[in-house]
Design a protein around this nucleic acid. Structure first.
Lengths: 346, 346
DNA sequence: CTTAGCACTCCTTCTCTTTGAGTGCCAAAG
DNA sequence: CTTTGGCACTCAAAGAGAAGGAGTGCTAAG
């Protein structure tokens, strides 16, 4: 896919896309010439537009309407034309203030992030909660609720708290529990959950553990407590923003999208994609590979804690999104969250 | 508002409402006579309908349309005409099975309840999470995360787990923390959070506490941990169901409703109303006293744990809801949840 | 290469008409 | 006194043109 567009063609494509983003109406040649820095006649613009249509960057809904960008058009715009600016520093401060006032709980902060993303972008905010396995073990505590029922409370380095009820076969004395707790906290702190789990498995395989009943129990209990059944959860805020978009005025289409949101699995999959990428990622339309979301675009970025990536966050909206303003918002939010997770809870 | 409707009028009102619930179309006299057990001519039915309109139970959108029920009509229908049946026992079993397979965590169960309510009613499910203060203290645990930061984990009798980060002024040793934990668990178990809090206040007022530093710290810590900032949270499942209702095909109206859902406060208020009521409560249209919800009805019921009411759950949909089928669903779900909360976690 | 001109397309909007469901009322029948 | 058939009336919804207009592609001249 060669990039062989003349400067002028790019300018015009840019203008069309930006006009369409602003108005949601097909853009005609006349509108373009009147608007801005394009000093050409409508006829010349038409020639270029026809060319851009041949190349697949534009389509016209019908002969007597203007042109609208295709996915390929958006993609080219995002990849090649768009120069993202930094965010206004006053706005940065305003956002940061939002979080500073908040409490310290990580999930609350992530929820706030999703809400803020939605409210300043005017689209729908998404935040993926960190997967257990990618986080760092910090502390575990067992609370005996009844002879057979133990509550495991597990805290990650970044401050995520996870509760888990574990049913056990044998009645454990408070003393035993305490020993187990101490042992685990001493040996496992600082490891990633991934590592903790492999370690548990290897240690259990060694004979020594098999003979030490207490150890065996410790491992059984902790491995039960650390099973990551969350499977990725997403905080979605501002679903109602979707109802504001003219492209989703079709109720049926709208319904499918909202249902997809409710199931979350598609969103988890999409946010997962951004986990290993650095910087902001843009997924446009059918790139989502979910038919229900084929008219939606996502702008995502990964956020990280002390050690490595924790999750991703972003904004979802129609293809026709003001990428130029939202990309910096997502970018800034991700780095802000990372910073806050880094400094908190030492 | 005297109930002076003849038997025949009631029958006709019932038929109209049920027809309207089924079709979402204004009901005409002809449709009624053809349909069911009404053996009258259209003309007679018209007379009765005019009478019902005078009484305020029906309105017609315009002269040449049929009639639709007013809120007063629904109210009368629900209060006087409707005889709710028990739920099909096979369906009961099917529902119960859903929960049995689930894990033990209370919030998971409540989420499942909301989801199930939505999927079997085909409307939107609501479940209010228990307020802390109405629940019974069972166990508290403190985990020291850093010198100044303590994680309080707090378990209620019904199995609700609450985490709270508390910042403290003074560095507490693990030994002190343990003492505090033991003290609190011994003295407070079995009391309601409400009682625990008043107790803390009175004890702190007594001199003895003032001189015992440890005690003072225990009280400070626990009172910080037990502050109920949750302010009532609602689990909403199946928002997309609203998009299926023809009465909300107006996007603007739809948007307002979804926004109201997102804010949750209105729903909390409405669910709160059902806290002290026994059995199923029906709130119709403007009875919600929220203009955005003036075309919505709620069917709610309280659920309870070992000791007293914990919260409410229910279904929200358009006024035109099949009350006859949903009321038993809500009723059964509430009692099922109560039963499960009673037997679990002893 | 650019641009003015022009014929052509076809969506959108408006008005006007038609259609039909449903009503209210009256007078006759039960 | 209640019930019913008949009938004129109302009014939303649906359809059919007709007019308007935005936008295009093409051609030929600058």
């Amino acid at each position: 896919m060669a990039v062989k567009l003349t400067d002028r063609s790019q300018k015009i494509l840019e203008a069309i896309i930006e006009e369409y983003i602003a108005t949601a109406q097909p853009v005609g040649s006349k509108a373009l010439t009147q608007n801005q820095g394009i000093k050409l006649s409508p006829a010349s613009v038409r020639n270029v537009m026809a060319e851009l249509e041949d190349l697949g960057y534009l389509v016209s809904p019908h002969t007597s309407a203007g042109r609208i960008p295709t996915e390929k058009g958006y993609r080219f715009y995002v990849d090649t034309i768009l120069r993202v600016s930094e965010m206004d520093s006053r706005q940065q401060d305003r956002i940061e203030l939002q979080y500073r006032q908040q409490g310290l709980q990580m999930t609350d902060m992530l929820r706030e992030a999703s809400r803020t993303l939605s409210s300043i972008s005017h689209y729908t905010g998404l935040v993926m909660i960190p997967r257990l396995k990618t986080t760092i073990f910090r502390h575990i505590e067992f609370v005996k609720l009844s002879p057979r029922l133990i509550l495991a409370v597990f805290v990650t380095q970044s401050g995520l708290v996870q509760n888990k009820l574990v049913e056990v076969d044998e009645d454990l004395s408070p003393r035993e529990l305490e020993k187990i707790t101490n042992y685990l906290n001493q040996t496992m702190t600082g490891l990633s959950i991934q590592d903790v789990r492999t370690r548990i498995i290897t240690e259990m395989a060694q004979e020594k553990a098999l003979y030490d009943q207490l150890m065996r129990r410790a491992f059984t209990l902790s491995s039960a407590a650390l099973v990551d059944e969350s499977n990725g959860d997403v905080i979605i805020e501002g679903t109602s923003r979707f109802l504001e978009q003219p492209e989703f005025s079709d109720l049926d289409c709208m319904k499918r999208i909202v249902q997809t949101f409710e199931q979350k699995s598609a969103l988890v999959e999409l946010l997962d994609r951004g986990l290993e990428t650095k910087g902001v990622q843009v997924i446009i339309g059918s790139e989502t590979e979910h038919t229900e979301l084929s008219d939606c675009s996502l702008i995502t970025a990964a956020y990280s804690g002390k050690r490595g990536t924790l999750g991703t966050l972003g904004v979802i909206g129609p293809n026709r999104m003001p990428y130029a303003t939202i990309i910096p918002i997502v970018d800034y939010t991700a780095s802000l969250i990372s910073r806050l997770l880094d400094t908190d809870n030492d």
